[in-house]
Amino acid sequence: MAENLLEVRNISVTFKTRYGILKALDNLSLNVKKGEILGLVGESGAGKSMTGAAILGLIDAPGQLSSGEIFYKDECISDAPEAVRGHEISMIFQDPLMSLNPLRKIGDQLVETILTHMNISKSEAIKKAKNGLKEVGIDPSRLNSYPHTFSGGMRQRVVIALALAPEPSLIIADEPTTALDVSVQAQILDLLKKLCKERGTSIILVTHDMGVIAETTDRVGVLYAGRLAEIGNTREVLTDPKHPYTRGLVESTPRIDSNSFKKSLFQIPGSMPKLDAMPSGCAFHPRCAFASDICTKKIPPILHKRAACWLLENGEL
């Protein structure tokens, strides 16, 4: 138990709309070990970001965590997620242009965060804020600058400094590089990875980019239509995917290294179902080449602690 920093047990997130109740997350379980980087991958709308928001209790109305529990350091936090925000678990959002309060200097935002979580004097907090900026590669003299004077990549550095300022044990990074230029993406990821390794901070990295998953994460969870399709060691999942969906994702990712360069990319036929039109049984069965009768009737559980696919019931895929 103790090796698990965070345990998400069977959570569901539902939205009440005029068309009925939609399940954005359906009976999802996963865990994060101390110091590891867990990737969450999937198409947009699969529930990756929703998982991150659910952990910190940041789901906007009319959505709500309708069932399941979340344990952090063996304590249930899903009833009062406010208590762990910041100094235990903090979060980085996708768009650095939108993540900083445009009307306040970045120094004020840093100092405010530090003072909220640490019992220190204001001058010490300023010193800490300057240190934080230095660590993410920003000149500490820019403490009194407004967010709009920074470029996108620089702003995401400020955001990282802010997220790390309360010294959390877990950071949920929700597509932290998607909104950035390709040339900056790798820098930001390396920076995040380096700072977290130094501190022993775990990361949940939400992304749709298999390349980022491969380079950055220790383990990966694949989400499809609000359900966990596959989870496991990143290397194993990528080299030997067990779920047909994961296999499709891996094969549809371009590679430069192998001789597959000439071949046309694999495409998964069809598209992910909308939440108001979920198929019965396994959500992936209408697109699955291996679908059998049972797939259309019963939702597969995670089998062999690896993948939610009925093919695994009778041994290996």
Partner: peptide, 9 residues
């Protein structure tokens, strides 16, 4: 930025 402020505790 408001969600971020909340996430920062």
């Amino acid at each position: 930025y408001v969600r971020f402020a909340k996430a920062l505790g």
